[in-house]
Design a protein around this nucleic acid. Structure first.
Length: 273
DNA sequence: CTTTTTCCCTGGACGC
DNA sequence: TGCGTCCAGGGAAAAA
C-alpha cells in the first residue's frame, strides 16, 4: 500500500508528536512483526528510548533514538501508524501500541501482517539499507546519465525496473504507472532501449507523480490512512492506475491493463510508446 | 549476475 | 447466502 508519498505523509504527521518523546511502554501483539527477533524482547528493548529524529528512506520509516539505535519500520502492503485518541475504539488489526511519556499513544495497524519492525544497533542502519535502497529520487542525486549507465544492461521491462528499490527508492506499483504515463513511455519497453532524453523525461515523470502524491497526502485505495487517520486524495487524480477502459486524459484512447514485474500495470496505448 | 516465480497474510469483489 | 477463484499498494527468497 504505502509508497513514498504515503510513508512521507505519515512521517510528517507523526514527527511533531514523537521527536523528543521517550517510549514509556511498548506492546507488540503480532509474533511476526519483529521477525526473526522475539517481539517481547524487542518491545522491552524499546522502552526507555528517546526519539531524536523521524526520517524516511525510500519506503522505510527510520526512527532514530538518542542512544544511536534505530527502529526501522516498513509498512509493506497494509501497515499504518496512527496517533490514538483517548476514545479510539478497539481495532482487531492493531498489532502494536507505543505509549509515550507525554501520555499520548501511537498505534500500529496492519491487516495483512506483512509489515516489519527491526531494531538496529548504532552503525547497523547504513549497511542494512545500502543493499536494499538506492538514492532518494526526490533529492536530485539521481541523474539521467547515471541511470543510463545502470539501465544499459537491463533487458527487463522498464516498469519492472522502476519497482527495483535500489534504483528508484520509494517508487511502487501505483506511482510507477503514473510516472510512465507522464513520461509517455510504454511500461513494457525494454529498459536498455531508453535513450538519454527518455530517461530525463522518466526522471521528471517519477518526480512529478511522487510530488503530486505527497501534495495530496497519498492515495487511499482501501487501507491507507495518515497518522491523523485521514485518507489521502491522490486516488482521485490517477491518470492510468486502475482506469482500464476509461479514456486517457491526454489523447482519449482507452486505458489498457497488462502485467509487468508480476504486478498489474495500466497504460495508455495511444500516447505511451 | 539478471529475471521470474512463489510465498508470506487477510479480506474484498465477483462468478456461479 | 454460500463457496470457489482471483486480486491487492510490499519485498525476500527460491527458482530458472
Amino acid at each position: 500500500m504505502p509508497e513514498l508519498p504515503e510513508v512521507e505523509t505519515i512521517r510528517v504527521g507523526l514527527e511533531p508528536h514523537v521527536v523528543g518523546r521517550t517510549f514509556s511502554h511498548v506492546e507488540i501483539d503480532d509474533p511476526r512483526l519483529t521477525r526473526p527477533h522475539d517481539p517481547m524482547e524487542t518491545a522491552a528493548e524499546l522502552i526507555g528510548e528517546t526519539v531524536a529524529a523521524l526520517e524516511r528512506r525510500g519506503k522505510y520509516l527510520v526512527v532514530r533514538f538518542e542512544s544511536g539505535r534505530v527502529l526501522l519500520i516498513h509498512l509493506r502492503m497494509t501497515g499504518s501508524l496512527l496517533l490514538l485518541r483517548n476514545d479510539a475504539p478497539d481495532d482487531p488489526y492493531r498489532r502494536a501500541v507505543i505509549n509515550l511519556d507525554n501520555g499520548s499513544d501511537v498505534g500500529y495497524r496492519d491487516v495483512r501482517r506483512f509489515g516489519t519492525w527491526l531494531l538496529l544497533e548504532p552503525g547497523e542502519l547504513e549497511p542494512y539499507l545500502a543493499s536494499r535502497v538506492g538514492d532518494e529520487v526526490l533529492d536530485r542525486r539521481l541523474s539521467a546519465r547515471a541511470l543510463q549507465a545502470t539501465l544499459e544492461r537491463r533487458r527487463a521491462p522498464i516498469k519492472a525496473v522502476l519497482l527495483d528499490q535500489r534504483m528508484f527508492a520509494g517508487v511502487g506499483n501505483i506511482y510507477a504507472d503514473e510516472a510512465l504515463w507522464w513520461a509517455r513511455i510504454h511500461p513494457l519497453r525494454q529498459a536498455s532501449t531508453l535513450d538519454r532524453a527518455e530517461l530525463q523525461s522518466l526522471l521528471r515523470g517519477v518526480r512529478k507523480s511522487l510530488g503530486h502524491g505527497i501534495a495530496r497526502q497519498g492515495a487511499t485505495l482501501r487501507d491507507y490512512r495518515g497518522a491523523d487517520g485521514r485518507v489521502g486524495s491522490m486516488q482521485r487524480e490517477f491518470r492510468v492506475y486502475g482506469r482500464a477502459g476509461e479514456p486517457c486524459t491526454r489523447c482519449g484512447t482507452p486505458i489498457e491493463k497488462t502485467r509487468a514485474g508480476g504486478r498489474g500495470t495500466w497504460y495508455c496505448p495511444g500516447c505511451q510508446l
